[in-house]
Design a protein around this nucleic acid. Structure first.
Lengths: 141, 141
DNA sequence: CAGCATCCTTATGGATACTG
DNA sequence: CAGTATCCATAAGGATGCTG
């Protein structure tokens, strides 16, 4: 990873979008980011990328989310029009969640972030550890 | 729609990454997502994409973040090795923040999400409003 | 200017028990 | 199975005042 060229591709591929607009429609964007940028929402959308899943499948796939949190997040995503909730009136109740077109458009950027996290997790972990060492330690009592 | 032709582009561009691994190294990824997927972190990284900025510049650019939150977030990003903090020992203290190589690699996926939010904000808003109408209303007392 | 410390309010999120 | 409801702990986050 030789560092010679500072940032060649950045400005060519993305012009400054809303990052610099202070507090106009930016408010709405921030709200959205706080919601979709949420830890669980990204994971849910990511898992739904491959096809519709039922409640328990999502919960198992993510592993670590409580039933309550999953319910709340799914409701939120449904409200925002990113996923649909289909209830099959069978005797063991079956509910399937699937991304909408709008939700599908979010999959690529969402997976982009998820994949980045997966790819750089240990590097960040190392950096974090180094930082903790040269400052007062991980937990300074 | 059956699963035969339901989602054409998704699986070709991203194989299921970590979304399905329940609770192994996934724990670390989830932790990272919760941090970088954070509302402010994404905005900060997005703003820093164009070049180094000083504290007040970031605060002004984002517009709506409190000083405390900005400080905490910047510290966190620094700890994770995503940005550097440079203090110039001048008489009006100047502190500049800049993305590291690691942080730069996050810019593209981060801006992807930020731009998605900006592009689809009003659509989500409409969807949300529609949902609120057909259910008990925005605030059901 | 940049940031730390303190107080205080609200939001987040887990555990548990109960229902259609 | 897929929730809903309740309780409770903790974390997030704003406001204010003080420092180098």
């Amino acid at each position: 990873m030789t560092e010679a060229q500072a940032r060649p591709q950045i400005e060519t591929l993305k012009p400054p979008p809303v990052c610099g607009e202070h507090g106009e429609a930016n408010q709405l964007v921030r709200d959205l980011l706080g919601r979709i940028g949420d830890k669980w929402s990204l994971m849910i959308i990511g898992n739904l990328a491959e096809g519709p899943l039922r409640f328990s499948a999502i919960q198992h796939a993510i592993g670590g989310i409580s039933q309550r949190m999953l319910t709340l997040n799914l409701r939120q995503l449904e409200r925002d029009g990113l996923i649909t909730r289909t209830v099959y009136a069978e005797v063991p109740p079956r509910v399937e969640y699937e991304v909408t077109d709008l939700g599908r458009s979010l999959i690529v950027p969402a997976l982009g972030l998820v994949n980045w996290a997966a790819a750089n997790a240990d590097q960040v972990k190392a950096r974090r550890h180094a930082y903790d060492l040269e400052h007062g330690g991980p937990a300074t009592p």
